[in-house]
Design a protein around this nucleic acid. Structure first.
Length: 276
DNA sequence: CAAGTTACCTGACGGC
DNA sequence: TGCCGTCAGGTAACTT
């Protein structure tokens, strides 16, 4: 489900419900996520504590408490966070929940369990080994992500540009959908080797990635199967897909059919006329 | 080392 | 109706 825009939309949905709230109880399904859930550790450290901030780094959601500890949550492919009245029965794939000091409950639901919830002290959270945040590249919407950076990091590499921009060490938050969409709008074929891309193209690609992600956030994210934000509403950016999932549809720009190939095992869509 | 492949899971869908 | 293969928004742990 979630690439950066979806995570950002969920984050914004969580804030009004969760900020400054106290946790009074936690629970879990005891099913293993990407990593085993440290239920006891989490419980003893966040019960009766208050949420002081909710932030995002890459596709990770960081919930921090007044006890100077944080939950680092990744949604994987099918994870979601939402609020429900405590009396609402749990759903089949609810794996972790926090009761608030009111009638509400934060629930983590994840069909495929590729997501993760990790507990860590907040101090130096961006650099310590255990948080998975330590080797991440720049945020795509920040000032330090630009064409010059892409050009510099691509030097002497030959991999496909689509794999390059989906590498978290280069830039974070660009997943399969938005990689395909950004490359179409920048006019660059997804399988082009990065050492064949010039400076002007890198600049165009960097600015296109920012535009696409910002636009998707404004639209409330994409709906593919099961994406809903924390208030359980669907996004509608998928209405704007130009190439993703559109094999054999006609290009919105030139009317030639959209092609599909596999790059690095992932479905890749492009227009052979508009992208080179 | 970089780059390519597999594994982790459930469920939806198409072909037979 | 069901069985089987394929595919899905991510990324860590392998192998080459």
């Amino acid at each position: 489900m979630p690439e950066l825009p979806e995570v950002e939309v969920i984050l914004r949905g969580l804030k009004p419900h969760l900020l400054n709230q106290k946790i009074i109880k936690t629970g879990s399904s005891n099913k293993k996520l990407r990593y085993p859930l440290e239920t006891e550790l989490i419980n003893t450290n966040i019960v009766n504590k208050t949420v002081t901030s909710i932030t995002r780094r890459a596709k990770y959601i960081l919930i921090t408490f007044d006890s100077k500890v944080s939950l680092v949550i990744h949604l994987g492919m099918t994870g979601n966070l939402g609020f429900f009245p405590q009396i609402t029965p749990k759903s089949k794939h609810d794996h972790f929940w926090c009761k608030l000091d009111n009638t509400q409950e934060l629930r983590y639901n994840d069909v495929r369990r590729f997501g993760s919830i990790r507990f860590t002290p907040t101090a130096n959270i961006e650099t310590i080994e255990t948080t998975l945040l330590k080797d991440l590249g720049p945020e795509p919407l920040g000032h330090d992500f630009n064409g010059n950076l892409l050009k510099k990091k691509s030097k002497s590499k030959k991999l496909a540009v689509k794999n390059f921009i989906m590498d978290n060490r280069i830039v974070v938050g660009v997943g399969n959908i938005y990689a395909n969409e950004s490359l179409f709008l920048a006019g660059i074929k997804p399988n082009r080797p990065v050492n064949k891309i010039n400076k002007a193209e890198w600049q165009r690609l960097a600015s296109t990635i920012k535009d696409v992600l910002n636009h998707a956030i404004e639209c409330g994210g994409s709906t593919i199967n099961d994406f809903v934000n924390a208030s359980q509403q669907s996004g509608y950016f998928q209405m704007n897909f130009k190439v993703y999932g559109k094999e054999n549809s006609l290009c919105s720009n030139c009317d030639s059919p959209i092609k599909q190939i596999k790059i690095g095992g992932r479905a890749s869509f492009y227009c052979s006329i508009c992208q080179s």
